[in-house]
Design a binder for these strands. Structure first.
Lengths: 346, 346
DNA sequence: TTGTAGGCGTTATCAG
DNA sequence: CTGATAACGCCTACAA
């Protein structure tokens, strides 16, 4: 009596096992009364079908997964909600899995596909560079969302939906340059050569180079070897380093809003006013940027729209109604309180 | 050739199925050379055992789960890391599952126990009131972490590790009272009668009542019917309502740091200085409270210590080395910049 | 040390 | 419409 199985239910109902199965799975060929009776007993006894057994046998589970990089990244919160809704609308089950910052999401995906019978996968965040061997092994359609660069091969084997991180980063840097800043420090993330942090750093360099400003390595700070590379703590620590270095700067571009917040605190503690003494810019468009004082100038990624498109695209591909695509979304530079013209502030 | 199974590996190696299984599962009775050979083939072919099949058969999987209330609650980030480490130390696999704010975590737990063969469960956040029928159905040991009230029955069927929300909330209210505030607005969460929001509200009332101050319902604001009840957005909206109501107040106690941040913004926009015009207090001890300007006075829960104790307790109970316990952790009132004496500020 | 056979709980495929 | 029965992929006695 420890674990209830479908057999017990069948016996209790005085019907065959398959009848119970049919009732559970909303199969058409079963009489309404029988179904009702069976369902009643199931409710009474609190029977829960064993998912492992189902996954093992089932071939056509309508199920997709979303793998999220980072245990607890608020950036993806709204995206998940939206994907959930889209999946529901098409009657797909959705499994949500977090992958920690230094984990290999493709690896996790491979395992998950074996365990559940996934029809498709969405990757939220993470690396844009993956082992082609692993990519080849992943037989179900998948789409990366929010993940920058992508090698444009002739035959697309996956989809990608993202903002052009390099260009947007360049845009923000140009914005700061237009405000008159020349000594712009950047706080970026350097966990690996294949993360958005690198793309955003490149965009920064692009902008400076285009204006003929030499890139000063003393103004580049990279988060490394920490559990959460996009934390306020990291931003704070690096901004402190920057301040301590004594190097001259009038603006800080943090490639994530959280980093920007941390940087703001460090600057504040050092007696710098924002934006009067130093301008600070972020990236992502998190809520906190709106509620922080000063409100953060940032690059807002259209997360909702991207998530919706991602889910639709994946579902369409599964249905054979679409091929893989690389889609670039425009981001918006949101001017707020944390940046100002050099020498003529606010 | 679509899906590799243990049989294929066995054939490729020219050994029996069970030999492969033994190699995979680190069984003792297998010759080192055979194991090595098998493992090599597995690596080459990229074979991944089907987890569903394993779960179905296995009885002694060393696996526990942690269920987290809220899709993306940064509050639990550090806790998860710690639990992960403790589990690893004891060679337990850890399944991490998020339950959305309005989902039933016990329900999810029941399903998970069936699917994987869990030895125990940790609940992070969520309701403290559960259907006794469901509780009874959950046959594996489980411990609630961070979840306030608990009915003290003679025979404990689960464990609970938490701060005394009611008392701590009372402490914070008293602190504000001691600063001279009498008109203290509270922003709390009212999603259900069984959440920590209610406990904290009670603590607030306790403090006022003890001082003979009448409770003014016009000062009580509850978040309701939103996807994320602990958001800055909610705090902002309620603080705005409070301001618009024209009711008199000199302090705001938000029962979560995020709510406090939102409230701060609303006050700031209304031209109120913090803490000169209005004191604001939070609860939880999130990072943001430290980096926000002004830094938030808050109740810091010892999340790390609680998480560690939680994991240890659960593992001990599983090993039969301990019985269920209700453990209360002390929280710390952290005085920072957002609160000040009434009429004699900062 | 290794291989064979049976079964975990379900669903799919058949006959009735 | 319903009920047996054979898989699903793996683990585990048990036999060799």
């Amino acid at each position: 009596m420890d674990e209830l199985t479908i057999k017990d239910i069948a016996r209790k109902c005085g019907v065959g096992i398959s009848t119970v199965s049919r009732a559970i799975n909303n199969h058409p060929d079963i009489s309404p009364e029988t179904r009702k009776m069976v369902m009643e007993v199931i409710k009474e006894t609190g029977f829960i079908p064993n998912n492992s057994a189902r996954n093992l046998k089932r071939v056509d589970a309508k199920c997709i997964a979303v793998l999220i990089k980072g245990i607890t990244n608020p950036f993806f919160g709204p995206a998940i909600q939206i994907i959930e809704k889209q999946a529901q609308k098409k009657k797909y089950a959705l499994v949500i899995q977090h992958v920690d910052a230094y984990g290999n999401e493709l690896e996790v995906a491979l395992h998950l596909v074996k365990e559940k019978r996934l029809r498709g996968i969405i990757f939220l965040g993470g690396s844009y560079q993956h082992d082609p061997v692993q990519i080849a092994k992943l037989k179900v359609p998948f789409v990366f969302c929010t993940i920058g660069k992508v090698k444009d091969t002739e035959e697309k084997v996956y989809s990608n939906i993202a903002v052009d991180d390099r260009a947007e980063s360049c845009k923000m840097t140009n914005y700061l340059l237009d405000l008159g800043h020349k000594r712009i420090a950047i706080i970026t993330e350097g966990t690996g050569a294949e993360s958005v942090g690198q793309l955003r750093l490149e965009g920064y360099k692009d902008a400076l180079t285009a204006r003929g400003i030499e890139i000063d390595e003393k103004l580049i700070y990279e988060v490394k070897d920490v559990e959460d590379p996009y934390s306020m703590e990291s931003g704070y620590a690096l901004a402190k380093k920057l301040l301590d270095s004594g190097v001259d700067f009038t603006a800080v571009f943090a490639i994530a809003d959280f980093l920007a917040v941390g940087a703001c605190r460090a600057l504040h503690e050092a007696g710098k006013r924002i934006p009067e003494d130093v301008s600070v810019a972020g990236y992502d468009g998190l809520d906190i940027g709106e509620y922080y004082t000063p409100q953060l100038t940032t690059i807002r990624q259209p997360m909702e729209a991207m998530a919706e498109r991602t889910a639709q695209l994946l579902l369409d591909i599964i249905d054979g109604k679409s091929k893989h695509e690389y889609i670039s979304f425009p981001a918006e530079l949101v001017e707020r309180e944390s940046t100002a013209k050099l020498g003529n502030q606010d």
